[in-house]
């Protein structure tokens, strides 16, 4: 954390034109198709979109863990501090994984190895990266389990994943990531499979730990409610691209992209007596054959002729915010 706390507004991660494609017999699936965004030190950045919009694949690409040989990062740059991760060799990359950047995946049921005690699994990055052994490593593990509020960590240490509830498991996964005090935490919909109350507990826990250690976080979700609670900035993804990036304060008041607007309209708001929730018509596009122009136009209420022909360029909308939409261009 000490490294990150240097300058208040320094950029920790800068992604430029990232493209990750799946090469299938039926064609090329463009899961991530030119994604650019930045994450500042200590900032929580939300990545929002429907399922299949390329959020998870973006995360895996940052860690360089896309499923091989099916998928490949074909283009782009991922600057972490002062190095482009995509140019590192495999052993250099491993120095980043688990040490400087950690990941929490969606399903706590499957992200812990069922045959090892959780103490072992949390200790792995500690032993690997901090070179701590024996008592020292155990102390570190206990400390982390304590930090994620796992009751009686001493006994829990020697238990197997199936002896934990879903919420507790996700805390273990978080502990696994946080044990080495990484600068960046990538959380891929970590609360989707949790009950609502457990979800709230987990969110406030992570927010608290994040503030305390000034960890940067990329928080993937499809839930704009969570974004409001967790994030400083939000990037809206559609069909493998970021269509709008905005400070959280602003996006609820003044969404620029029709897709963002639609997402907001489909969130129920207490006290707001709209006759019915808004539904986005149609399906997200097949990523094997993305329509030309703006991929959202077939579902867009205000689509124009130009939308069908050309992808809209980036339009700055004040501060670091931007949007890709012909409406904003005019």
């Amino acid at each position: 954390m000490d490294r990150a706390s240097g300058k208040a507004d320094s950029t920790l991660l800068r992604v430029e034109g990232l493209k990750t494609y799946f090469f299938q017999r039926s064609g090329v699936l463009k899961a991530v198709d030119g994604v650019s965004f930045t994450v500042k030190a200590g900032e929580v950045v939300g990545l929002v979109g429907e399922s299949g919009s390329g959020k998870s694949m973006t995360c895996l690409s940052l860690m360089r863990l896309v499923p091989r040989p099916a998928a490949r990062i074909v283009e782009g740059e991922v600057w972490f501090d002062d190095r482009n991760l995509l140019e590192l060799d495999e052993s250099e990359m491993r120095e980043y994984r688990g040490r400087r950047m950690a990941m929490i995946m969606q399903d706590p049921q499957t992200s812990l190895n069922p045959v090892f005690m959780i103490g072992d699994q949390v200790a792995e990055p500690v032993k690997l990266h901090l070179k701590e052994r024996g008592r020292q490593a155990i102390e570190r593990v206990l400390e982390t389990l304590y930090a994620v509020r796992i009751p009686s960590p001493e006994t829990r240490l020697k238990q197997y994943p199936h002896q934990f509830s879903g919420g507790m498991r996700q805390r273990v996964v978080a502990a696994m990531g946080l044990s080495t005090s990484p600068e960046l935490l990538i959380a891929d919909e970590p609360t989707t499979s949790l009950d609502v109350t457990i979800q709230a507990q987990f969110l406030s826990l992570i927010r608290e730990l994040q503030r305390e250690h000034r960890t940067s976080v990329i928080w993937v979700t499809h839930d704009l409610g969570i974004v409001a609670q967790m994030c400083d900035r939000v990037n809206v993804m559609y069909a493998g691209r970021i269509v709008e990036s905005s400070a959280v304060r602003r996006i609820y008041k003044d969404p620029q992209h029709p897709y963002t607007q639609a997402l907001l309209d489909s969130v129920p708001v207490i006290g707001n007596r709209r006759p019915r929730l808004y539904q986005i018509d149609g399906q997200p596009p097949d990523l094997r054959s993305i329509p030309s122009g703006c991929p959202f136009w077939p579902r867009c209420p205000s689509a124009m002729d130009i939308c069908k022909e050309q992808y809209p360029p980036q339009t700055a909308t004040g501060g670091d915010d931007f949007v890709h939409c012909w409406l904003a261009e005019q």
Partner: peptide, 14 residues
Amino acid sequence: DSDYVTMARAKGLP
């Protein structure tokens, strides 16, 4: 294909 193998890689294990 499993998540825990991805997680093991994400920890930086060789």
